[in-house]
């Protein structure tokens, strides 16, 4: 059956369109990186900025009259401490819920639970911030006797609650994608359902589960409004879970509006943006490496 010339041209056109879509994703990523970097790059070569100070000092005084200092160490530590604690809380709960939904619960309960989990994902981050500011704040003061409830723990709990829905839905998809043949084979070999989960399903769904966790991490690192409202927003190195911190994202959000366009302060905030971008990039690269490395072993 010969195809018409028009049909062939259409085929080519669609192919081109799809290729454009694919290439544009890469272009956008590089484009964003380029423009963010360009806004901040001027300061790098100006002599008024030291990389050592940026990464090594906790003194962040971008608007000081006497001596301006751009030490971002406390902000980096703030972001890391809140993210790590949030993941410690969210990963076990998220993966656990995903396993329960995919393997142990009945169809009807699963539908209900999925709706509830998705509802959790639909809450705007400013509402989470408000919950942190009011409910969590007084709860932490009462439970731990902390002088103020706006701290690492508060922010981490909010971020955990915000990333759990992502981890659950991606994780459940990953488990669902494991062929039923694996389940049947393992059960036919006399595995109990728990043995099936940790010996077969978790290894088989490893890549998807890792992706779920990383998307959770991405959500936590990038989240701004909730941590701005709930972590206390004070620049210092935390020594306990009950210390207030400030994160990289919150700093950009709080200060960019007041920094004159093109000023040193404005530029350093874009450098903070580049740093955030680099962190997520490294996290993703590590994940890809881990996944490939494990595969290559076989």
């Amino acid at each position: 059956m010969a195809r018409g010339r028009g049909e062939l041209a259409l085929e080519r056109g669609i192919e081109l369109l799809i290729r454009l879509c694919g290439v544009s994703a890469i272009l956008f990523v590089f484009g964003i990186f380029f423009f963010v970097f360009r806004e901040g790059a001027g300061l790098l070569w100006s002599g008024r900025f030291s990389i050592l100070e940026f990464f090594g000092s906790i003194e962040w005084y971008p608007t000081s009259q006497s001596r301006v200092r751009y030490g971002a160490l406390a902000l980096i530590t703030g972001t890391f401490s809140v993210t790590v604690l949030a993941m410690l809380l969210a990963v076990p709960f998220g993966i656990g819920t995903a396993i329960y939904l995919s393997e142990f619960c009945g169809a009807r309960r699963k539908e209900t639970l999925k709706i509830v989990v998705e509802l959790l994902a639909a809450i705007p981050s400013v509402v989470w911030g408000f919950i942190g500011l009011t409910i969590m704040n007084s709860l932490i003061i009462r439970l731990f006797g902390a002088p103020i409830g706006l701290n690492v723990l508060n922010g981490a709990m909010l971020l955990a609650l915000m990333s759990v829905p992502i981890i659950v839905s991606i994780g459940e998809d990953a488990l669902k994608a494991v062929p039923d043949g694996y389940r049947e084979a393992a059960l036919a070999l006399g595995a109990t359902r728990w043995q099936l989960v940790y010996r077969v399903l978790l290894p088989a769904a490893r890549n998807g589960l890792l992706a779920a966790v990383l998307l959770g991490v991405g959500r936590a690192v990038g989240e701004t409004m909730a941590v701005l409202m709930a972590t206390g927003h004070s620049i210092r190195m935390p020594t306990s879970l009950l210390d207030p911190v400030r994160t990289l994202t919150a700093t950009i959000a709080a200060e960019l509006g007041e920094a004159p366009v093109g000023s040193d302060h404005y530029q350093v905030l874009f450098l903070v943006g580049v740093l955030l971008f680099t962190i997520t990039f490294i996290v993703n690269m590590c994940a890809v490496r881990i996944v490939r490395g494990k595969r290559g072993r076989g």
Partner: peptide, 24 residues
């Protein structure tokens, strides 16, 4: 039980055979 299509568990040859003995 042997299924129509060979279902290699995502494990090594050794671990595939060792699966059931270890489970028990």
């Amino acid at each position: 039980m042997v299924a129509p299509l060979p279902v290699g568990l995502p494990l090594t040859v050794y671990d595939n055979v060792a699966f059931a003995p270890r489970m028990s």
